[in-house]
Nucleic acid binder design. Structure first.
Lengths: 203, 203
DNA sequence: AAAATAGTTGACCAGTCGGTCTAATATAGT
DNA sequence: ACTATATTAGACCGACTGGTCAACTATTTT
């Protein structure tokens, strides 16, 4: 039980930090507010984390891992075709924003711009998240190319990176527009149109 | 001369704020540092701007307008074909990051995530920038579609938004990766490959 | 020249920031 | 029971935040 208690305090801090940094930013989420929401005194915070920076690295890692697991559970489902899995993944993400509101977006994207210049460890944490996501997506794309669901002239890694980046760009726009139309545009132009075109160059 | 002096002080503040907020974030760029770099005392700042928030709105508007002018000068050059203009625009942007370093990126994208939930006026300023850029790009896309340089089955507005969003996503990734490969991926997958495919659906 | 306005200047403010420290308490090992 | 360690607890710290203010100078208007 003591072990679970230990986990619980740290857990509450990470959960609280995740929520607050997603809502406000890294600088916007003050320690005092994080502590208040987690109902944990400051001393305990500095027992588990050596600094706010260090704390944020763990928050990012946690968020990154959670999302990767979610991706895996969808993209590794061999019962469905690769392209349908990719489509399904983005559908689920879009549904999430549709029901949870277009205001709160991906923590990693949020911190990426704010913090990549501020702190090397934070930059690396964000980079790790992106790289893992891209790699997983690239595998699924390769599967799709093998059965000719996606044009083989695409470079799988490059396409995966572009898809990940495009989606993040769309979620940014979603936040400033206040609705999920940018995600719909991504679906229409990239997924439903662009990826289904065949290679017969115009020139 | 007195008029230009007046302009100069405000100008120096905006320039300084633009630089510092691009480098650090909105929260990361403190007033004192902005003032120090502009060599302007605090009192003068509050003579021209009623708050930091108000100041940031003007900084965003300025940055947005400058970029729009730059876009216009490239995308409205009727001497070149529409698609070449689009390609040229992104080439120039990529060259900029190639020579100026992959660390400093678009201020508007940077502030979009950090600040869209914090302040309505700031959100609107950012939204205005995006909307103007998208609109201008959409016009050029329509031109390209008229001469069949871009497949006519694309919705021009949606495609313009996607291009804008994708590019922002790519610059984010560029910053966390520390190099411009994400921009190269954008070129390869979106511009050189995706847009040149013709519509012959696979299903 | 007088009065009014525009702009400059930096000391000052309350509040908050991330972080430290010491004391108390709980838990575990012996 | 005794000791060592893990955890809780919050008062406290200097530094810095955005913002105010009253005094001052320069410019314009009348």
């Amino acid at each position: 039980m003591s072990v679970t208690e230990i986990e619980t305090t740290k857990e509450r801090l990470i959960t609280s930090g995740l929520a607050l940094m997603s809502e406000k930013s890294y600088h916007g989420a003050g320690l005092s507010e994080i502590l208040k929401r987690a109902d944990v005194p400051k001393g305990s915070f500095y027992h588990y984390f050596k600094s706010k920076e260090n704390f944020a690295v763990e928050v990012i890692a946690r968020n990154s891992m959670d999302h990767l697991e979610k991706m895996k559970s969808i993209l590794s489902d061999k019962a469905t075709s690769p392209m349908d899995r990719i489509y399904g993944y983005y559908s689920i993400m879009r549904d999430f924003y549709r029901s949870n509101g277009a205001q709160r977006s991906c923590l990693i994207a949020k911190l990426a711009l704010e913090v990549s210049q501020l702190s090397e460890p934070l930059r690396e944490a964000v980079k790790g998240a992106y790289d893992q996501w891209s790699q997983l997506l690239a595998e699924t794309i390769r599967e799709a190319q093998e059965i000719d669901e996606i044009d083989q002239s695409f470079d799988a890694e490059a396409l995966a990176n572009v898809l990940i980046n495009d989606w993040e760009g769309a979620t940014i726009r979603m936040q400033i527009e206040g609705n999920i139309k940018p995600l719909d545009d991504f679906f229409e132009v990239i997924l439903e149109h662009g990826l289904k075109l065949k290679a017969c160059k115009s020139d």
